[in-house]
Design a protein around this nucleic acid. Structure first.
Lengths: 122, 122
DNA sequence: ATGAGTGCTTCGAAAGTAGAAGCACGCAGC
DNA sequence: GCTGCGTGCTTCTACTTTCGAAGCACTCAT
């Protein structure tokens, strides 16, 4: 996982300067972390059905490449959002809190869908 | 802005098959849309201080390249989250609702920072 | 030993992003 | 007119990230 002296294990964490913000403000680190592709989706899937295997999670995420999945799980693990249990991958208590907030996005998305159908696009 | 018949206007929208999900479920479209780089940040900045100019917003986002910013604003506009007013760019009512949900992420991020400081990483 | 499952890595190709430069427009002052 | 400034936004090339197939090392049951 961590090849020694890997400068690129640049997981966005609070207190660290992250890409797009040198201040290290927690919200910036979070927005950066969640801005990585598949990250939001992985948290979402783990919230829906906890405990999948690596390959199982891969399938749930519509066949995300294993290289990226491993990378994301490492980031989320380092951030204390996901951990690996004997029964598979799962959200930590912190991760569950975060997932709860994401649930609100789900409700928003449903209303969004309704409005977009009413408004003919382009 | 919306040049007709542009094949690349692949903005993730509910009802459309998006990358990583053929179903077009609203939440998937949203997670995909928000997973693009700078998208979360742009919404966040517009929620903090509405009405910036293009270049002003660019500076707030730590110098995001103008090409990406224009692309993101087009996506968010197409999604009905951001629109351009006479006083500059601003969130639509829908966008403000979304930003409200993101505010919860801010609180989570602060708690996250506290925990990460207590636990030395790696 | 064979086979199937696991987590995870490697590597070339494709897609996305960075960053500087520049275009077209409007407007104020001259 | 022209110059200068500010606007939104595009174009271009170089760099980074992601994809996707393949494969490695390991465990466990057969």
């Amino acid at each position: 996982m961590a090849r020694d002296s890997d400068d690129r294990s640049a997981t966005p964490l609070p207190g660290r300067p992250v890409r797009g913000s040198a201040t290290g403000r927690p919200i910036m680190a979070l927005l950066d972390l969640l801005g990585h592709r598949w990250t939001l989706r992985i948290i979402w899937e783990l919230a829906q059905t906890p405990g999948p295997t690596f390959r199982g999670l891969q399938q749930r995420c519509d066949g995300v490449s294993s290289s990226v999945l491993a990378q994301r799980l490492a980031e989320l693990g380092e951030a204390g959002i996901v951990h690996r249990t004997e029964r598979g991958y799962a959200l930590t208590p912190d991760g569950q809190d975060l997932a709860t907030d994401l649930t609100r996005l789900h409700h928003w998305a449903d209303r969004w869908a309704t409005r977009m159908q009413q408004r003919p696009l382009t």
